[in-house]
C-alpha cells in the first residue's frame, strides 16, 4: 500500500515524472517539451527535490491527458541510458514478469 502516490517526496537520485494516459492507461513519462512519451529515454531526468516538484507541478496541471502523475526513480547507466529505478517501475515499463496466458 505504499503506493508512490502517497509517499512524501524526497529526491536522492535521478528521477522522472510518470503517469498513466487517461484514454488507455498506458504508462507515460514527462518529456522535455511538456508532452508525454511512452519512451523512457525521452523523459526529463532531474536529480533534486525542487526540480522534481517543479516537474510534477507542471504535470499535474493537466487534467485530461494523464492520471495519477508521480515522481519515480530511474537509474542512469554509464552510457547515460535511462532505466527504471525499481521493480515496480520495471514492471510498469516492460509489463508483467510472467508470460501472459496463451502467449508464453
Amino acid at each position: 500500500m505504499t503506493s508512490p502516490l502517497q509517499q512524501k517526496l524526497k529526491v536522492t537520485g535521478p528521477v522522472v515524472v510518470t503517469a498513466n494516459r487517461l484514454g488507455d492507461g498506458a504508462v507515460v513519462y514527462r518529456a522535455a517539451d511538456g508532452t508525454w512519451t511512452k519512451d523512457l529515454a525521452v523523459a526529463v531526468v532531474v536529480t533534486t527535490t525542487p526540480a522534481a516538484l517543479e516537474l510534477l507541478a507542471a504535470a499535474t496541471t493537466e487534467k485530461v491527458a494523464v492520471v495519477d502523475a508521480y515522481v519515480a526513480p530511474v537509474e542512469l547507466t554509464t552510457q547515460q541510458q535511462v532505466l527504471p529505478g525499481n521493480l515496480r517501475e520495471r514492471i510498469r515499463s516492460s509489463g508483467p514478469t510472467v508470460a501472459l496466458p496463451g502467449q508464453g
Binding site: 498506458a26 504508462v27 510498469r92
Partner: peptide
C-alpha cells in the same frame, strides 16, 4: 473499472 500498473 480500476487503474492498474499498466492499463485499466
Amino acid at each position: 473499472v480500476y487503474l492498474q500498473l499498466h492499463a485499466y
